[in-house]
């Protein structure tokens, strides 16, 4: 269970998630200290383990920097719920074994600060603050397979060893 950080905005981009001035490192802990900095300078202070980010359309647009996923993961955020995701961000998250949720309803109904619990297997978001439950479609099978293997490289390694 964690808190929802709701940004009812579209096109939250990789420059806002992790500004390029911090791309001179790829250490997750260091990146996490600047997570969402140019969108919400107070984010790191208020974010805690298991929290979720909720946003509008096209989350993660812009650069191919996987550092955006690492910064969010490093900040101990459990998942991002958005109406839609930009393509490279979505792909990077799956490849890292980081689960994303697409849901219009969640973006409309979850309020900032709500306590939410997510059952990934059942495809259910439980908003403990308002008492509502929102179901979501799980990721496609191939994505679940990659996440299940622990990310793309583990998946690739498994295939290499299988051959």
């Amino acid at each position: 269970m964690g808190k929802a950080h709701v940004y009812r905005r579209d096109h939250i981009n990789t420059d806002e998630i992790i500004p390029a001035r911090y791309l001179n490192t790829d250490e997750e802990e260091e990146l996490a200290r600047h997570c969402m900095e140019d969108l919400d300078a107070g984010f790191v202070e208020k974010a805690g383990e298991g929290d979720v980010i909720v946003a509008g359309d096209d989350f993660g647009c812009g650069s191919s920097r996987e550092h955006a996923v690492w910064a969010i993961r490093g900040a101990k955020v459990r998942t991002v719920i958005a109406r839609s995701f930009a393509r490279i961000f979505y792909r990077n998250a799956i490849n890292c074994g980081f689960y994303l949720i697409e849901s219009n309803e969640a973006v409309e109904r979850i309020n900032d600060g709500d306590e939410v619990e997510i059952d990934f297997e059942a495809g259910l978001i439980k908003d403990k603050t308002s008492g509502i439950e929102i179901s979501f479609s799980p990721l496609p099978d191939f994505a679940l397979e990659i996440i299940g293997d622990g990310g793309l490289l583990e998946h690739v390694k498994k295939e290499m060893q299988g051959n």
Binding site: R65, I88, R91, N92, N95, G151, L152, L153, V156
Partner: peptide, 10 residues
């Protein structure tokens, strides 16, 4: 097309 670091590694 552009890719991230994990895809790049693969």
């Amino acid at each position: 097309t552009g890719i991230g670091s994990t895809d790049l590694a693969a």
